[in-house]
Design a protein around this nucleic acid. Structure first.
Length: 242
DNA sequence: AACAAGTTCAACCGCGAATGG
DNA sequence: GCCATTCGCGGTTGAACTTGT
């Protein structure tokens, strides 16, 4: 098949996004949605390809994005989900509200993999100490994605349940490795329980976690089985820790 | 204080899947 | 059913940043 050029590379901007571009994109999506990524940049007056816009929105500007360090719970969940699902980052991300596949992939490659390697060694224990998040390149222009999403241009967007939950519960201080952004343990039990409880309808990924990242459940039946299994195991595990 | 080495993460690339005409 | 277009995913890159010397 002859591939259409991903994006006409002529005259299109690349590299880090500016605050202006972010605002333009957010404002446009707020008004018109993103039914057609390819046409979006033109309509919005952005010198970016649709792919780039989509990526920026999905990974950064979406109102329900939860930024900040991963909690130990999240890291454990990623490790276990990865053990079950392999490198299916989008599927893993669908189980972690507010996290993107890209972010999870990064975390996996940067320190979870190392953590597993070191923990598989006899004396190996801790993951490499996480340093504070740096302000990102493009983000310095944007009051920092490192800061609350609500302070981004998307602040006027409706806050999702996940976001409000995560922001309001970012006060737990039990984990030493994530100081600035933490999730209460109850968040996890609620989240996991929610997925398991809702018998039948279960795992409402597309509704709960956003249609953008979740794949249709019809193709995920088998996977859902394993994920459900994991959820249950996770519940049991958390109970045993009490 | 300056430099080198190591780490992190936003963004890009290419491919396959899905969708529409 | 075929073809073209668009979307979404996973792998990879490279600049910015941190840490160590």
């Amino acid at each position: 098949m002859v591939r259409a050029p991903c994006c006409e590379k002529m005259g299109l901007k690349r590299g880090p996004w500016t605050a202006e571009e972010d605002m333009t994109l957010v404002a446009h999506i707020e008004q018109h949605g993103h039914s057609n990524w390819r046409a979006l940049p033109k309509q919005a007056g952005l010198l970016r390809c649709g792919k780039s816009c989509r990526l920026r929105w999905i990974n950064y500007l979406r109102p329900d994005i939860m930024r900040g360090n991963f909690t130990g719970e999240e890291e454990d969940a990623i490790i276990q989900l990865h053990a079950m699902l392999g490198n299916r980052w989008s599927t893993i991300a669908a189980r972690l509200p507010g996290r993107t596949d890209n972010e999870i992939k990064n975390v996996w490659h940067t320190h979870l993999k190392k953590r597993l390697q070191s923990s598989s060694k006899p004396s190996g224990q801790a993951a490499p100490k996480r340093k504070a998040k740096k302000p990102a390149v493009a983000t310095s222009a944007l009051e920092g994605p490192t800061s609350q999403p609500a302070s981004s241009p998307g602040q006027s967007l409706p806050m999702s349940p996940e976001q409000s939950l995560s922001t309001s519960s970012a006060t737990d201080s039990s984990s030493s490795e994530s100081e600035e952004f933490q999730i209460d343990d109850s968040f996890w039990s609620e989240t996991l329980a929610m997925s398991v409880d809702s018998s039948g309808s279960g795992l409402e990924t597309s509704d709960t976690f956003g249609a953008d990242s979740a794949s249709p459940s019809s193709s995920n039946d088998e996977m859902d089985f394993w994920v459900t299994l994991f959820m249950q195991a996770s519940d049991m595990h958390s109970l045993s820790q009490i």
